[in-house]
Design a protein around this nucleic acid. Sequence first.
DNA 1: ATGTGC
Length: 473
Amino acid sequence: MDMTFLKPIDSCRWQLMSSEHPVILYGSRELLEEMDNKVLEQISNVTKLPGLAGPALTMPDAHWGYGFPIGGVAAFDPQEGGIISAGGVGFDISCGVRCLRTNLFAADVIPHIQDIADHLFDTVPAGVGMEGEIRLTMAGIDDVMKGGAHWALAQGYGVKEDLACIEEHGCMPGAVPDFVSDHAKKRQLGEMGTLGSGNHYLEVEVVEKLYDRQAAAAFGIAEGQILIAIHCGSRGLGHQIGSDYLVMFAKAAQRLGIHLPDRELACAPVHSEEGLQYLGAMNAGINCALANRQIITHLTRETLSRLLSGVRIETLYDVSHNTCKKEQHRIANKLREVYVHRKGATRALPPGHADLPARYQAAGQPVFIGGSMGTGSYLLAGNPSDLNQAFASASHGAGRRMSRNQALKKWRGRELIDELERKGIYIRTATLRGVAEEAPGAYKDVDMVAEATEAGGLARRVAYLRPLACVKG
DNA sequence: ATGTGC
């Protein structure tokens, strides 16, 4: 990235001086220097959209995305013509991470890890277009979109205790299935309870190191304990909603005379017909993703219970990193109601927030920085709002530093799998090509991203998690 | 991310 116009605020926050509207980039000098200049270009374009409230932001894991950078955060005020954009949410609506806490420890799992990897891979469908056991009718898809994880529970997937530790308690209000096309619904008829492809995964991890013992106790985790991370989203349904509304937003922007610095930033005012329809459809997509992760939670529980005795698995937390949500934030000392786009950025609620379950009130919201296959992940906790000045947002992963095509030229899936196996990490995958695209070397250094996330005040590290087995899409 | 291109 061209650092010429970036002025450091502190070690991990930089302000873009050449911009009319404030732009803040989070990350160490090293992370930013390595970052594609497209990130700077894209976040600058975002500031030119109507009704931006407060600064436009990028997280330490940011990289080039469709219109908005992945790792981008921007709030818009509908009272000032603020917009909503499909590219600002991402095509995989409500892509996110569910983290499961088990009562297992490394010694219980490591002797059986290959068996566990095989069975999880057999049980949870992974890969492009993969369908699961569940077949729904069009009316059934409407019920998914209205009910979210509650729908899944009513079908017998999971236990009611799961709901308390899911964002929005498992059901996003404001979902309007009528604003979702039949085409989008049809694509989802067989895809509930499936992982998808790309960077999606189901991973068995061990708590390797604790940074914050108090928060770790609140999260119910100890060194050596086994956790499971489920990273996936709203599959074909969310993708089709994104595609449908991209076209509608392009027309709306033209009709309403909204200047788009990049056609990929197609958008409409939140309070326009298209804006309100997209909100209803996007909320429906969020519920699809919440239901999907709930089903996969159930499948994981069943699989591990078959293989090991006395297994107890609880939902630690489930949070999305591709959403736009109406929230109240203090901006320039004024409380405003804004629509916060988080694209590849995790919501990170502060301690004491009313939406947090009782057990996390003191610690703050669990935040996941999912690593690449070989390099492990971090569990963090949300910071008080005087520290987090990013609309309660934080990094969501390691973040790509290389395109999929570059990665394909550089690595072979089989070699990566063998290399990881020598380190005790067992990969099960739908496609070797997918593994090459997701090579650990194609991602930023997750340790650096987690450090910068903490140094920037976004969240504080609670634990480092080492991968043992990974089912890849 | 994605019925991995219409």
